[in-house]
């Protein structure tokens, strides 16, 4: 599975078959990837009011109630909006969800893979997991930043922190995309860790299960 070359990336960008918007400089486009910049929101994971992350809090369960579910999600993430020229400090050991400044739109025959830029990685800034961007995706890309070093790192919205490479996906159809072809992602979001796993996660009031 070959990654797209610069020539191929530029060709698709020109045709708007692939969208990464805005691109400020031709230097943002590397030999086989495009640099992505930090956006203006930070969701900082904090241990306020919660003892632990429990997938049970993510269940769509009438027994546990919407208040508990929303509280579990919202309390964990401290949300900050950051204007241009304002710093975002990433402290050692912190996990922060951030959006890219760029809006990314992938055609159905491309998958994107996002990794950290090596220059930042050498400072200790890590993108916690390699982020896959599905074919047909439209929106900002959520990045999970963490600081593996011992010194806080100051980031500013607009600086290049990641890069996205593209691989062709063969045989993809519109029906493979489902409803996701209409969805757009405007905000960084926490994951749906309980999705489709409710069989294995006890609820607050287990129904008909004997111990």
């Amino acid at each position: 599975m070959a990654a797209l070359s610069r020539t191929q990336i530029v060709e698709r960008l020109k045709r708007r078959n692939l969208v990464i918007s805005p691109i400020f400089s031709s230097q943002q486009i590397g030999p086989c990837s495009v640099d992505l910049r930090l956006g203006n929101i930070a969701l900082i994971v904090r241990a306020r009011g919660l003892s632990h992350v429990d997938p049970a809090n993510y269940l769509d369960d009438k027994a546990s109630g919407e208040y508990r579910r929303e509280l579990g999600r919202r309390q964990k993430l401290e949300r900050h909006e950051i204007q241009f020229s304002e710093p975002l400090l990433v402290h050692p050991g912190t996990l922060i969800l951030v959006p890219t400044l760029e809006w990314v739109k992938l055609p159905k025959d491309l998958q994107g893979i996002v990794t950290a830029r090596s220059s930042w990685a050498r400072e200790g800034l890590n993108i916690a997991t390699a982020t896959f961007v599905d074919p047909g995706y439209k929106g900002i890309v959520t990045l999970e930043l963490s600081n593996l070093g011992q010194i806080p790192i100051a980031l500013y919205p607009g600086v290049r922190i990641a890069q996205i490479a593209f691989h062709e996906v063969s045989g993809s159809r519109d029906s493979d995309l489902g409803r996701s072809q209409f969805n757009m992602s405007f905000e960084p979001s926490a994951g749906e860790i309980a999705k489709d796993d409710s069989s294995f996660i006890p609820t607050a009031q287990p129904k008909g299960v004997s111990r």
Partner: peptide, 19 residues
Amino acid sequence: HNRIPPIGNSVKDDGVPEL
């Protein structure tokens, strides 16, 4: 219409963007 934020940006030849 193509679900892209409407801004003054496009990519020209050789990847040079127009702002």
